[in-house]
Design a protein around this nucleic acid. Sequence first.
RNA 1: GGGGGAUUAGCUCAGUUGGUUAGAGCGCAUGCAUGACACGCAUGAGGUCGGCAGUUCGAAUCUGCCAUCUCCCA
Length: 907
Amino acid sequence: MEKAYSPQEVEDRLYQKWLKERCFSGKIDQSKDSYSIVIPPPNVTGVLTMGHVLNNTIQDILARRARQEGKSVLWLPGTDHAGIATQTKVEQALLKEGKSRQELGRANFLEHAALWRDKHGGIILKQLQKLGCSCDWKRNVHTLDDDYSEAVIDAFVKLYKRGYVYRGQRMVNWCPAGLTALSDEEVIMKPQKSFLYKVRYNILETPGAYVEVSTTRPETIVGDVALAIHPEDPRWKNLKGKHVLRPINPKALPIVADEAVQRDFGTGVLKITPAHDKLDFEIAKRHDLPIIEILNADGTLNEHAGHNYRGMERFAARRIMVKNLDEEGLLIESEPYENNVGFSERADVPIEPRLSEQWFLKYPRIEEAKRAVKDGHISFFPKRWEKTYLHWLENIQDWCISRQLWWGHRIPVWYRKGGVRSDPANWYVGNKPPKDIHNWKQDEDVLDTWASSWLWPLATLGWPDEEAMETKGFDYFYPTSALVTGPDIIFFWVARMIMAGLEFKGIEKKKDIKLTEAEIAKRVPFKEVYFTGIIRDSDGRKMSKSLGNSPDPLELIAKYGADGLRHGIMSIAPKGQDIRFSEERIEQGRNFCNKLWNVCRFRQMSGTPQDNSIIELILLRIQSEQITRDDQAILLRLAETLNDVDRLYEAYEFNSVLHVIYHFFWTDFCDWYIEVSKPRMSNGEDKETCLAIQDICLRQILLLLHPFTPFITEELWFVLGFANGQSIQGFSPGKGADLINTLRKQGFELDPKSLDEVSRTRELITHLRALKAERNLSNNRQVEFFYMTNPKDEASIKDRQASILTMAGASALKKADSTPSGLPACVTPLGSFFLDLSTGVDIKSERTRLHKEVTTLEGIIRGIEAKLRNSSFVDKAPEQVVNGAKKQLSDNQHKLKEIKEALEALQ
RNA sequence: GGGGGAUUAGCUCAGUUGGUUAGAGCGCAUGCAUGACACGCAUGAGGUCGGCAGUUCGAAUCUGCCAUCUCCCA
């Protein structure tokens, strides 16, 4: 074995081997429990980010752990066509060739986009393989696959027939860059520094009088149709029924009273621009006001804005209108103002509320979706996301599902040629085009991408095609076991998938009939949802392309290995908290792998492992009379670790899982057990016993670590000859009780007292080492110690003399009959020890050190004494707490006495 | 405006229902080429647990108020 672990060769070789042996294929096996996860489909044209690394490492850990437990595991991969994002990218690529989408025409463009996707798409899947993800790649699904598309269309048609889908003219979020409507969820509110303009609207009936109106969007003045006041606002009672003159493109406008007006904003007078504001639109409808659209789809002003402004870009128009108002003395003032402006999530431009005709979905099964989570059919980790989820469902708005794009699932609606489009009598809605197609024209729009991905757990398993469901194991794998995703798509995706599952799984249930408890349990798409944190840079900023603060995971893999990256990212991922990334942590992941490699290397150098194929055969190599307290203690710690890991997995506490494994491996096993074993391994007699114990520990350590660092553990599993060359993937670390039982069956009983004894010895060693280190004696420098103790502890010391000598770097331990004078001393759980030094002892600094310890101990003792004097503590606290305090007091008093003696000996 | 989260060592974070002397990793200091590992070993320094009040025999932990940061929704 090489001195340092080099992951590159190992990782590629093993991954190819796993693929070849079809280790990841999800088989329908009724003799086993199923375990399934569907991947949150990444954008097909995307590349791997740190967020993907975190998210997919967690899924891989769950999948590998389930495989070890003997379940039949399906981790189903795939990609999302990402309508707007992909179309934008393809259009940009076309633009470089000087072509536009319109020039190509719809059919040509789609062909072009599909080619582009096939060329650039799927890179991310290869990257996931580099990370070690154990997806069933043969099952890879893309949302624009034929069968998936049929499912999307089928869902639309079903929802339409069930009365959930409607077409209507509504105020929507319009993206002037993408030229499409967006759902509320795709709009991001951002605080903007702008100006609040106060504009003068002259009152027609009272010459010279005017009202002051505040607005942040003066360019919409040309679309004003009225002013509105609150009916109970005393300031404006006399205005009711009067008219004002529109300050630009002058026109008489009525003043209406409406309760929706915010009295405390500005002067309490609101200008009404119904075509370009949601609230204004509502008010206009109530008062029967006209609706004047002044914007084109691309955000420029149209002919209704008047010939002066027609064709002007919206923000340019704003500047000019402000200038004109000012020149005419109609601008009272403009003050700096910060307000929230909605931005298009994808195009990052301010959206415009715009009146347009779109397809909407009334969400199905909202009530059941709440119950599914409230009643525990679906559990969220961390639990607090339930609140966010329920709050959204309480305030849910209909979903605008049509998009003015070409790349996506075209809406399966045809309009009768020559008929009025808004009349449903002229619609044909169906999975297949109408037979007399020449009389019909299909809707131009496509569906929101999320209106396809909300079917993900259903459609990837074959729904709604019954034959496909059979072969893909729908009944076996659905509901899926866990979903791992970011909280940022809890509304976009998680909540919608739940509603889709409730509506579509199983037989149709009429709209007004609620699902039963049992039906909900069967229909939910997953049972547990784990929300990861969001990865930030070391300054706490979100990672983004524009900031350039996002490291390339592939570079990190090249530098530290996939295992190192996985270990590093998992060690900094606290449950549901945002994560501050730093490359140092990945470096630590690599260091961990190297440590693991080297301890196995050391094991190998101590002799080729004999039969390590099964744990019972390893146990046969143990001579029970050679078992030491250290052997017992490490096995007990191993059992504890197995139990802790089991418990922490249940709670999705991944970084705690890793932490307890880390601590057992590094501190208990490497720093202590291996070190204490070294003298035993050189004397030959009980070497085999000791190596067998090491093999048991290493075997379990590899098994425990395998979900986190799959490559190196598999490699070392082979090196040390576990399981006769079978992959580590099929073996479970088991529970602590399993280990204890196996040992018991072979006649090995572990004494729980050994744990305490070993920890006392460890404390002793630390004290002895410190005594040396205080005077800069290197830890390998051989020294001698005197000690004074009681007969029982003396027996312990003699019993493990060899390991104490090795661990402390000593050549002798000599019993003293009286306190040796003038020697540096320490008080340990096994007695007082004195460093035997003929020269060079700095008595003064030694006294200082011991004095400090006396002060500390006296403080502790005072605290405990005060507590025990307090009668209410003694009366009310549980007995074991009081006894604990008493024991603590006597221990510390004893220690204090010995230190004082040592101090006197230094006179 | 409504809601969530955070505040513990220089940094990043643990601390499960209140109960021995608050932990880890990194960093720092000192020593060490020791026959697994310098991607390592050993030892050590470093914290009035954001502030104030309250509940309790006992508060990092529970309650209230305040401060700062952050996210989501309107």
